[in-house]
């Protein structure tokens, strides 16, 4: 059939990365869920910018754990510059470092009818104004006290809020 993934394969979700603390939490959970249900022996996230682990580090860790075939899925809605220019550069670097590892790049998220169902399910979970900023609390829960985080220095940042209390 050719549609069953070889269990030695790894799937790497390639994402941009964010300065906001906790922004990667959802994607980490998505990868863990895919790995737990057996989509591939390893399902990991690799970032282009800002967030850890960077793509090259993710490849290194998958190869160290025995991956010989890696499928990279761009976790982007649209295949723009990051997917068309930056990702091929990352792939070329990885192929130079691991010439015996076969790497393939899948399509970005783009169009899929399941996205319509996902959107409708998101609407089902709609909430009143009091809950609209709950994701900010999620960012605070994963605070790394990063000065680049847009919450740093605001009342929403646990690190800077705490230091104000000390002063």
């Amino acid at each position: 059939m050719g549609i069953i993934l070889n269990m030695s394969d790894a799937i790497i979700l390639f994402s941009h990365g964010s300065v906001l603390c906790g922004a990667g939490q959802n994607l980490a959970e998505l990868a863990a869920r895919m790995q737990a249900r057996g989509d591939a022996a390893m399902v990991e996230v690799g970032y282009l910018n800002y967030s850890e682990p960077r793509f090259g580090e993710t490849v290194r860790s998958c190869v160290a754990r025995g991956a010989t075939e890696i499928i990279v899925v761009p976790y982007f809605l649209v295949a723009g510059k990051f997917v068309k220019e930056d990702l091929p550069q990352c792939i070329a670097n990885a192929e130079r470092a691991y010439p015996n590892v076969k790497m393939r790049v899948a399509e970005a998220v783009r169009f899929h009818p399941a996205l319509a169902d996902a959107l409708l399910a998101c609407a089902e979970r709609a909430q009143a104004p009091a809950a609209w900023r709950d994701t900010k609390a999620q960012a605070a829960a994963f605070c790394r006290a990063s000065k680049r985080c847009p919450l740093y220095g605001s009342n929403d940042c646990p690190a800077t809020r705490a230091s104000e209390m000390v002063v």
């Binding site: 998505l30 709609a126 994701t135």
Partner: peptide, 20 residues
């Protein structure tokens, strides 16, 4: 009312797997 954001829906895993 504000809904959940698209990337938070579990169906994204199926889309990603199909791309792979």
């Amino acid at each position: 009312l504000m809904g959940d954001y698209l990337g938070h829906d579990p169906l994204l895993a199926d889309v990603i797997l199909e791309r792979a």
